[in-house]
Design a protein around this nucleic acid. Structure first.
Length: 355
DNA sequence: GTCCAGGTAG
DNA sequence: CTACCTGGAC
């Protein structure tokens, strides 16, 4: 028995068995699937269409596409305009271009048949790690388990892995590799896919009828809904700001009160520039300096996610004698003010990193 | 109405 | 890392 992440229930053989048994009864009927033998061409087209696109949207498009171009040779004789027209509404139109380019390559170099190994598949435009693995396992019975978000979620839940933690991707890939030995690689891949879509759903997973629950660490810990969670920093829009960090010889920091702003109104903040889409030119800060003094640039940056944005704050620093004007807050009294956590974060970082 | 996921290419 | 597009979540 293999043990991953303290999951002593993990038993690859047994899990594959259970999953296959479930799949044999519950497999979705989809137009690109064939009980006796899957067509590599159909699997390829369906996998490309299914990238970023729901099964529901793909089904009618797949049918008309295959009807119009029943094999790769015929597809290679089409025009890109025809293919784009057929792709209309599916989105990500580069996929259509890539399919056409691949069709030409396959006709020319592979006699109209998809190559049967992962490396050659990945050389074709539009085929990356996932799609190569999907086609290889489903169409050619090559023992791999490609990891898309659905399979990732299933494996992560079974092993209690969070996207947040270090090396999440490689941990999931390592678990996936444990399943490479399967006797029915294509069915196992599709079993995982259907299982992720029907039972181990992103929201409201059906744990009460899940045949894998006894192997599932998240289920045992009652945290299924939280796994795999989100990455801490997603691709958010970037905004840049410069904070003026002023501290006096009584260990007080210069603050100011936010006024006519939508967010964080009435809370205390460190003096700073407005947030900009672009990095600040340090020569254009004149109108934003809270006081007149010399500014040290210690090359300190603080990154923080806030309401849909990823902030990158640069710190300019100044140490000075007692000064009457302004809102000065003693370091050991910060707790008694309404200060957004982002500014606390900045303060902590600055105090830690100052030379 | 707004937010945002999601494989691949670049 | 971002752009690509759409539809599903909220």
């Amino acid at each position: 028995m293999l043990v991953i992440n303290n999951n002593t229930e993990l038993d690859i053989e047994k899990m594959s068995q259970v999953l296959m048994k479930w799949y044999d009864v519950n497999a979705r009927i989809l137009p690109w699937r064939n009980k006796s033998k899957n067509s590599p061409y159909h699997i390829w087209i369906s996998e490309i269409m299914l990238q970023q696109t729901t099964v529901k949207a793909v089904i009618p498009k797949f049918k008309s596409f295959i009807k119009r171009w029943p094999d790769i040779k015929k597809l290679s004789l089409a025009s890109i305009d025809e293919i784009l027209h057929e792709w209309q509404g599916l989105g990500y139109y580069t996929r259509a271009h890539n399919i056409f380019r691949s069709a030409l390559i396959i006709s020319k170099n592979y006699n109209g048949r998809l190559p049967k190994n992962i490396d050659s598949l990945k050389e074709l435009p539009g085929i990356g790690d996932y799609t190569a693995g999907a086609v290889a396992s489903i169409a050619f019975s090559i023992p791999v388990l490609p990891v898309d978000v659905n399979i990732e979620r299933v494996l992560a839940r079974i092993n209690g892995l969070f996207k947040n933690e270090k090396n999440f991707k490689s941990k999931v890939n390592n678990v996936a590799k444990l399943f490479y030995e399967s006797k029915r690689p294509g069915d196992l891949t599709q079993a995982f896919m259907d299982f992720g879509a029907i039972i181990c759903k992103p929201n409201n997973p059906l744990c009460e009828i899940c045949p894998l629950s006894k192997f599932c660490l998240s289920f045992r810990k009652k945290i299924v809904g939280k796994v795999p969670g989100k990455k801490y920093l997603k691709s958010r829009k970037k905004r840049y700001g410069v904070v003026f960090f002023v501290i006096n010889n009584k260990n007080q920091i210069l603050f100011r009160k936010r006024k006519n702003s939508k967010i964080l109104r009435g809370m205390m903040e460190l003096p700073m520039t407005p947030l900009s889409k672009h990095k600040w030119n340090l020569n254009s800060l004149d109108q934003y300096y809270p006081i007149k003094c010399e500014w040290e640039d210690n090359n300190i940056f603080v990154k923080a996610p806030i309401s849909g944005f990823q902030l990158e704050i640069k710190i300019l620093f100044s140490r000075m004698g007692i000064q009457e004007n302004g809102e000065w807050v003693a370091l050991d009294n910060i707790g008694s003010y309404a200060i957004p956590s982002i500014f606390k974060k900045i303060i902590n970082k600055v105090l830690k990193e100052l030379p």
